[in-house]
């Protein structure tokens, strides 16, 4: 069975966003849907999408591989994306990355044995004032990932609690996501 067979309504909605003869515009939304639900986009799905938007599997592969979000290989249940660009780096994202990689025992492209985690270093997530930042799957950011917040986060995920619930229950979470963040202490470390 095709992935989209039972999603005709959703498909129609997506196609309606674009001119009738420009179905190809729906390529990215369709890829995203597969990525969200299956954790990666395999060749069969590429062919399915190609047929739906009226192009070839080659073109789908070309577009898909251009973006960092879509994955060609399976990812973990929690695909952790760590921002590594300058502002996050200044907030310690290198150390965060190494800690995560070591704790989970995986490198980019790998999935933990229990299928729970995979890791990807990504570029600037646009939350430079609340670094270091991580994003899990396609969910809201986890900002200012201090050591304490990381601990709590991993613990929640190990118990497979709903992601949003875990995120909201992290220490200091209510202070995150504001246009302005006040650092406590704020003195040089």
């Amino acid at each position: 069975m095709g992935f989209f067979d039972d999603k005709q309504e959703w498909l129609a909605e997506v196609f309606a966003q674009y001119p009738e003869d420009r179905r190809r515009s729906a390529l990215m939304p369709l890829l995203r849907r597969v990525q969200q639900e299956e954790g990666y986009v395999d060749f069969e799905r590429m062919k399915e999408i190609a047929a739906l938007v009226g192009t070839t599997a080659t073109e789908v592969a070309g577009v898909m591989s251009f973006y960092s979000y879509y994955q060609g290989l399976p990812t973990g249940k929690y695909h952790i994306q760590v921002c590594r660009t300058l502002s996050c780096k200044l907030a310690g994202s290198d150390e965060l990355w190494h800690t995560l990689s070591e704790r989970l025992g995986i490198l980019p492209g790998e999935v933990t044995a229990d299928g729970r985690f995979s890791l990807q270093a990504v570029e600037c997530l646009g939350s430079c004032h609340t670094g270091p930042v991580i994003q899990i799957n396609d969910e809201h950011y986890v900002e200012r990932v201090t050591k304490a917040r990381l601990e709590a986060l991993l613990e929640g995920l190990m118990q497979d609690k709903p992601l949003e619930e875990v995120r909201r229950s992290l220490p200091d979470e209510d202070k995150m996501g504001k246009a302005t963040i006040e650092l406590e202490g704020g003195e040089p470390s």
């Binding site: 502002s87 430079c128 004032h129 670094g131 246009a179 302005t180 963040i181 650092l183």
Partner: peptide
């Protein structure tokens, strides 16, 4: 926008 080691980084 201000980021990096500032007391109140933000917009």
């Amino acid at each position: 926008q201000v980021s990096g080691p500032a007391r109140r980084p933000g917009v």
